[in-house]
Design a protein around this nucleic acid. Structure first.
Lengths: 339, 339
DNA sequence: TTATTTTACCAAAACGTTTTGGAAGGGGCA
DNA sequence: TGCCCCTTCCAAAACGTTTTGGTAAAATAA
């Protein structure tokens, strides 16, 4: 593998000039620069990243730790999310470091320590933020830039990231359900410590109130963002004293499990019971019946998060620190909306 | 951020000793080692990775580039796959670098060059191998270890990775379909350049022959491993002159699209037509109807690939270079097998 | 002409580790 | 005692860059 020294020797110039030529400095003549670029190309010279990182004190990498509760998980949300992060990072010549750790576990702490304090990453992407999130405190303390998908409770002015405007979407969704005659509407949520659960449940309840429907505590069930969790929660709802006629799920995977449970209990989803999800990712167009959902552009969100983060990392002027995104209601057959 | 020098100064010993104490060398007394470890812990010292990489000439990272054709893709296979890679890597104190690039694109080439020649990774994980795969040639040339999920045609003795024993699984699956009385069985595949398409189509045809069913070219359709691709291919099959009564799909996502198309055409999947997938990942238990599929343990496969790769990277004695995995036939309602 | 600025280059230091090749001191043995 | 071998430690070199603080030559100004 040729080093910068080899290139310099070949052209009979100093390594300084090679370095500065390739980095686009003005104090190297256009002619020399072209010769350097040409020689580097033909020798197959690629700067050694470790050396560059060591000297520049930055890594040109950002990190993302998948908050996967179980080892075996297969959430298409993350496939799309990671693709977005990776693409935006690559287009800025950054690398993306990925790992997995259960939320609030010792592994998670160890990973963040290793990445942040070992100076492996210049910034971090966070999602599935928790109401009280040690990661936020830790990153703040260590002065590592980070961008979040959901704003945790104690993030005020310094918040950097993307927020989904949920309330409007939920009001629209629940209005749609109410228009179908539903008034017995349940919610299948997730761990109460998650910001997204907090937001979505709150928006759900607010929307009920706005529609003059009395919220009922026995219609709030808890899943775990997986189809299995949705399946079990739906089973409990359907075998309770007053089963709902419509169910709003915290994400698409939960809704898929819920549809399965309803079907197994003899319901025809979309006729006997209405079910809706959130995310718009999980092949939701191809479920049977197709799933009504609040679609949010996961890939775009991921790119936006990365773009924001990299601006801060590079200390560039940043226009807006918060990008707000409106979810888009997709009415499909699962809510009886249309064939 | 404290450096090794700070630790050494605090204890009044040389940085050599600190380094060697932490790395577990024998030529430092147990007492000194304990003092070093204690001091490092309390000062919050974490070795700078760039410096270590530069000196040791290795990165303690492996890379994986998601072969995503479109920017927006949401294949749960990859979520589970990446989780497996990340977990195994993390447990060996390695990091996982991830990016995305369309197969055979210029971006793909640029990424591999950057990672390999810039010495960003010690090894690479490959999947969706192509029959003639420039990545294999490139990595071989540059003498970078890599592990593959599918064996490309020109990889003989030097192959390192996991192979799925497909033929047995397909024979079992097709036997199951034949037992239901199906003889008009179609196959929805993927790009002909992919090794997995080659393998699965070949296994499909061999199994037909073994069951004394005449393979028919007009029952071979092509998708693109996505639900959309499966949907379109299925539509073409169903509107052809002799529509099939059973369809085997190259993966679960294709099967999900195919089920959707069949339903839209008025078929009841599992009664009027049988459909099967491959992977066992995609929430296949929760589709409507639940999908018959050849289940392969994606998470375990990913961990195994990483384990093999890291052994080679660390130049450890490696037992077997090839791990063979048997897919497991899961008979569910979509093939009419059971309720 | 001489003085000043601009252009184009470079030597050497620095980044924080790991590794090499010793060296000091103590104990065992003849 | 003298010799050798452990044990435990260390100074210095090396890894491949980027950055600092220049200098020499050429161009421009006075």
């Amino acid at each position: 593998m040729p080093t910068i020294r080899d290139v310099a020797r070949k052209l009979n110039i100093s390594i300084t000039t090679v370095s500065r030529a390739l980095d686009g400095y003005a104090d190297v003549s256009e002619e020399t620069r072209q010769r350097v670029i040409e020689a580097a190309r033909e020798m197959g010279y690629v700067p050694n990243r470790a050396a560059r990182q060591l000297r520049r004190r930055r890594t040109d990498s950002i990190g993302y730790i998948v908050p996967a509760a179980k080892p075996q998980f297969a959430d298409p949300f993350f496939a799309e999310f990671i693709a977005g992060l990776g693409d935006e990072a690559a287009s800025a010549n950054y690398d993306l470091l990925v790992s997995t750790a259960p939320p609030n576990s010792a592994e998670e702490q160890a990973l963040y320590r290793r990445w942040v304090q070992g100076e492996k990453v210049d910034g971090v992407i966070l999602n599935r933020t928790r109401l009280s999130d040690w990661r936020v405190d830790f990153l703040r303390e260590n002065k590592i830039p980070f961008a979040c998908l959901e704003r945790s409770l104690d993030q005020a002015a310094d918040f950097l990231g993307v927020e989904t405007e949920i309330e409007g979407g939920y009001l629209e969704l629940l209005g749609h359900l109410a228009a179908q005659g539903h008034s017995h509407i349940a919610f299948i949520g997730a761990d109460a410590g998650l910001k997204l659960q907090y937001d979505r449940l709150q928006a759900f309840q607010k929307s009920l109130t706005a529609l003059h429907i009395q919220p009922r505590p026995d219609l709030i069930a808890t899943g775990d963002l997986t189809p299995e969790g949705g399946y079990q929660a739906m089973l409990r709802l359907l075998t309770s004293e007053h089963p709902p006629s419509a169910v709003v799920c915290v994400n698409d995977l939960t809704a898929i499990g819920a549809m399965h449970a309803a079907h197994n209990q003899g319901y025809v989803v979309g006729r006997d019971i209405a079910i809706a999800g959130f995310d718009g990712v999980a092949d939701s167009a191809h479920t049977q019946p197709p799933l009504t959902t609040l679609d949010q552009p996961v890939y775009t969100i991921a790119r936006t998060l990365t773009r924001l983060l990299l601006k801060v990392v590079a200390r560039e002027e940043i226009g807006e620190r918060v990008v707000t995104i409106q979810p888009n209601l997709l009415i499909r057959a699962s809510s009886g909306g249309k064939k």
